[in-house]
Computed example of a mutant assay.
Amino acid sequence: MPMVTVSISPLQAADIRAAVDNGTYASSSEVVREALRMWDAARKLGGDRDEMLNPDCTPGGGKCVAEMFADHEAEHRRRA
């Protein structure tokens, strides 16, 4: 698998670590791959980038990435 180096904020790193520590994900890589799948799905649905990434999650044409990821995590927890 190709390696890519990215920089993330300390808060993002802590959130990723928490998702692994609480058992929601098996590894940090799994969290990032899932986030990228959600980003790709949102991108394919179209819409304005700023709208999809709106921290208030109030896009005009559907769910923003944060909502999609939260929905997915909730489903992941229900199945566990």
Score class of each variant (00 low, 15 high):
M1F: 04
M1Q: 04
M3N: 09
M3W: 03
V4E: 05
V4Q: 07
V4M: 04
V4P: 01
V4L: 07
V6E: 02
S7K: 14
I8H: 00
I8S: 01
I8E: 00
S9D: 04
L11K: 13
L11A: 14
Q12T: 15
A13V: 01
A13C: 03
A14K: 12
A14F: 00
A14W: 00
A14M: 06
D15M: 10
R17W: 00
R17A: 15
A18P: 00
A19C: 08
A19S: 15
D21P: 01
N22V: 09
N22Q: 07
G23H: 02
G23Q: 02
G23L: 04
G23D: 02
T24N: 03
T24Q: 08
Y25H: 11
Y25P: 03
Y25N: 03
Y25D: 03
A26G: 12
A26N: 06
A26T: 10
S27T: 15
S28T: 08
E30W: 00
E30M: 04
V31I: 04
V31A: 04
V32H: 00
R33V: 08
E34S: 07
E34Y: 02
E34F: 04
A35S: 10
R37T: 05
R37G: 02
M38I: 15
W39M: 12
D40V: 08
A41H: 08
R43G: 03
K44I: 05
L45A: 15
G46P: 00
G46V: 02
R49L: 13
R49F: 12
L53D: 10
L53G: 09
L53W: 13
L53P: 07
N54K: 11
N54C: 13
N54S: 15
N54A: 12
P55N: 06
P55V: 07
P55C: 07
D56Q: 15
C57Y: 09
C57G: 10
C57I: 08
T58Q: 13
P59Q: 10
P59F: 06
P59E: 08
P59L: 11
P59H: 09
G60K: 15
G60Y: 05
G61S: 14
G62K: 08
G62C: 09
G62S: 09
G62R: 14
K63P: 13
K63T: 13
C64Y: 05
C64T: 10
A66I: 10
A66K: 13
M68W: 06
F69A: 13
F69N: 06
A70W: 05
A70L: 12
A70H: 11
D71H: 06
D71C: 05
D71T: 11
H72G: 07
H72F: 13
E73T: 12
E73G: 02
E73Y: 03
A74P: 02
A74K: 14
R77S: 01
R77M: 05
R77L: 09
R77D: 07
R77W: 05
R79T: 06
